[in-house]
Design a binder for these strands. Structure first.
Length: 475
DNA sequence: TTCTTGGT
């Protein structure tokens, strides 16, 4: 095995991958034994037209005024540097691993690569790269092997799995000058936590390792007619014994799975309307979607007995129910058809940031992206006009505006500036952090996150100064 | 039961 791991973490200006921006990247390359081979840290200047959530800067300790006034590379340069390092590190292949990376950092990375015209948006899951998430492993450990790690509990008794708390409670020590919520520091903490989990809870860790591959879920569900799926509603875990109904047509790696808590024999005579009601009956729903593209880990049937409900039903009955599903093709295709017919249709996305999944870049456009990057700034606009995909033309204008605005035709520059202006002055319900939205969340974030009155006043003043500077540009 | 973690 030649596994390499890339432990990585991002600090950003907020939680919205489309409209917020990465401010710091931290990453550590290790071999299969988690020995450190290389380290990466990239900071980035804020791009015009991107702002911040006050709470995000309070968390990371970033000074709002410093977002523009620093000597860091601009967002385009930083993204290119990130892309190139990750490309090198993942040669021939690597496992990208972080803490809540699959739901948080990954979308951010893709947006950064998309918005900066990097050709391989999906680099963490292509050319034999895969991903794991230590947060997801920790969740399983908290349910099935809670004795192996120390947790704080919330007032309902559920474990709190915040990285900084886990770090402190379990005496993880890191020799690195920065502290929690620094991207490099948190990458190193994630690396150490992962080591602990892999040693103390090898069965769960190895299962998670197998499920890094997107082909594992299907194989696993076929060879384990009864399996255990652990889902979470907030902090509350639910243990489910399930069986495979079938793949969902048109959705790669998505599977409809049946909850074996319910006896399927009693369901097949229901008409469509009644059956559909059972399918959507909240916590009592008879089936649900398993997304096999997100490295979510299924466990073998024996784990479900952690919940007495399943011990009472017994393994024989669970297997009988699973077998009933497997041998009733008609019933399965009915469930899948009903599921498909009742999917909500999403409205067409409008803003360019939301159009990331519209289509993959064509080979020609990929080649043009390289040409765009290597062309001197004075030629970049010219190259950008050759993109077949309109999205890339628009994103190119934003990049050129950032690195060499004087090379843009007057009209292009004006249009983009008008768009930024509109966004900045949008109301407090805008998707991005408009002036009004920042102001609307400022007080609550201050109160929730800063205890010291002096610090509060200071931070508030720095936000106001930032907004005044921005108002001078876009007001 | 219908409660939305965690990441910034």
């Amino acid at each position: 095995m030649s596994d390499q791991f890339i432990f990585w973490d991002l600090e950003t200006t907020g939680r919205n991958d489309k409209y917020d921006q990465i401010t710091q990247v931290g990453a550590v390359l290790t071999d299969k034994n988690f020995e450190v081979k290389d380290k990466l840290e990239i900071h980035s200047k804020l791009r015009e037209g991107k702002w911040f959530e006050p709470g995000a800067l309070i968390t990371t300790g970033v000074d709002p005024i410093n977002l523009f006034k620093n000597n860091y590379p601009n967002y385009y340069e930083a993204s290119a540097q990130l892309y190139e390092t990750f490309q090198q590190w993942s040669s021939p292949s690597a496992i990208f691993i972080g803490f809540n990376n699959i739901n948080f950092d990954e979308p951010f990375l893709r947006q950064a690569l998309y918005q900066n015209l990097m050709p391989e948006l999906y680099m963490t899951v292509t050319s034999n790269n895969t991903r794991m998430d230590v947060f997801e492993i920790l969740r399983l450990v908290s349910v099935y092997s809670p004795e192996h790690i120390k947790f704080n509990q919330d007032d309902q008794g559920y474990p709190i799995l915040k990285l900084d708390q886990i770090f402190k409670l379990n005496n993880i020590s890191i020799s690195y000058e920065a502290g929690p919520h620094d991207a490099v520091f948190d990458s190193l903490v994630t690396l150490e936590l992962n080591k602990i989990l892999s040693i103390r809870c090898p069965q769960i860790w190895n299962a998670a390792y197998d499920f890094r591959l997107r082909e594992t879920p299907k194989k696993f569900m076929i060879s384990n007619s009864v399996f255990t799926n652990t889902t979470f509603w907030g902090r509350r875990p639910t243990i489910k014994a399930q069986t495979l109904i079938g793949g969902i047509p048109g959705k790669n790696h998505h599977y409809l799975v049946y909850n074996l808590l319910f006896d399927p024999k009693k369901l097949q005579d229901l008409d469509d309307k009644e059956l559909l009601k059972k399918m959507n009956d909240g916590a009592k729903r008879i089936c649900e979607v398993f997304d096999g593209s997100k490295s979510k880990t299924l466990l073998s049937e024996s784990y479900c007995f952690k919940d007495n409900k399943f011990a009472e039903i017994g393994i024989d009955e669970l297997r009988l129910r699973a077998n009933f599903i497997k041998t009733n093709e008609k019933f399965c295709s009915r469930l899948i058809q009903l599921h498909l017919d009742n999917q909500k249709q999403w409205p067409e996305p409008f803003n360019i940031e939301e159009r990331i999944f519209e289509s993959f870049p064509s080979p020609q456009d990929k080649k043009l992206m390289i040409e765009f990057h290597t062309a001197p700034n004075t030629r970049k606009y010219e190259v950008s006009k050759l993109f077949k995909d309109e999205r890339y033309k628009e994103l190119a204008v934003r990049i050129i505006y950032e690195i060499a605005p004087q090379t843009l035709p007057e009209q292009e520059r004006r249009n983009y500036e008008l768009e930024i202006q509109e966004r900045f002055n949008d109301d407090d319900k805008s998707k991005w952090n408009s002036k009004n939205r920042i102001l609307a969340s400022l007080e609550t974030d201050l109160e929730k996150m800063i205890e010291d009155e002096n610090e509060r006043v200071q931070f508030k003043q720095r936000v106001i100064t930032f907004l005044n500077n921005e108002s001078a540009k876009w007001g």
